[in-house]
Amino acid sequence: MNKSEKNKKNYAISDYVIFVLLFLFGIFGILGVLYITLNISLKTPSDMQNILSLPKHPEFKNFSEAWKLTEFPLKFLNTFIITIFTASFTIITNSAVAYVIARNRQRSRFFNLLYYYFLSAMFIPFQVLMLPLVKQANFFHLDNVWGIIVLYVVFGLPMNTFLYNGVLKSIPAALDEAAYIDGANPLQIFIHVIFPILKPIHSTIAILTVMWTWNDFLMPLVLLTKQKFQTLQLSQYVFRTQFSTNYNLAFASYVMVLIPVLIVYVVCQRFIMNGVMKGSIK
């Protein structure tokens, strides 16, 4: 067996091992967790001895009780407003910031440093900023639904700048120059020429932002102190008392919260992968 055939054999074995590991992870790490979550949501407290066994008498009323306890319509509306407006403002503002930086990095040291400043912010954990953020948010009256939208847009800027910049580098500056010769100003160039070209990465960032804001727990926990502003994730606390937790109702609520974002991810995962690859490689 020559060296080439031996390398091919080693690659085949490696691919097989990777496939088996991914398959096992998908079965036990993802489907297994979903099975346990749905299974517990249909159980009664007396059936909780074995969480893997199927419920003897499925209790679908767990979902209706969880709906009432969590004030699901109000909390869903808050979460929906935060998610949709955050995604919309993120695409508009972050793409504009990334465009200005990408077009001026080569000729301006300030914009080059600004780019790396945003990248460095990606490595700062939110827990480090949490206490100062709470104090400043209270001072500027940002501890509400609209205030947290602003903060989500700002905190998403570092990663989104990185993704947008990767795509903008592949768009020739000659397009800007041609539009400028035709009489367009920089704002018109961005709106009518560059922004439509960024549609694939817009889709990716919108989906990632939706998943992040919908599932986020920590920032709403420290900012949204008033009950009328709370999100679906914060409403899960209602099932935990001082001495016990209503696991069946809690897991029923988890299922209801999980379904919307799960549908978004399954339907749009192709856009996520395509946009991330374009933003990180080019």
Rank of each mutant, 00 (worst) to 15 (best):
G183E: 14
A184M: 13
N185I: 13
N185E: 11
P186M: 08
P186H: 07
I189A: 01
F190I: 04
I191W: 14
I191P: 05
I197L: 13
I201F: 05
H202Y: 08
S203N: 13
S203H: 09
I205F: 00
I205D: 02
A206H: 02
A206R: 01
A206W: 03
I207G: 00
I207E: 01
T209Q: 11
T209G: 05
T209V: 13
V210K: 01
V210T: 04
V210M: 06
W212P: 05
W212E: 14
N215W: 05
D216T: 09
F217K: 10
F217N: 13
L218M: 15
L218K: 07
L221T: 12
L221Y: 11
V222P: 14
L223F: 07
L224I: 12
T225M: 09
K226V: 12
K226I: 09
K226N: 14
Q227Y: 08
F229Q: 05
Q230C: 10
L232C: 05
Q233L: 11
L234D: 06
Q236S: 12
Q242H: 05
F243R: 06
F243C: 02
T245I: 11
T245H: 04
N246F: 13
Y247D: 08
N248K: 09
L249T: 03
A250E: 07
A250Y: 02
A250M: 15
A250R: 01
A252S: 15
Y254S: 11
V255A: 07
M256R: 07
M256T: 04
M256D: 08
M256H: 08
L258G: 12
P260E: 08
P260V: 14
V261W: 00
V261P: 07
L262E: 00
I263Q: 10
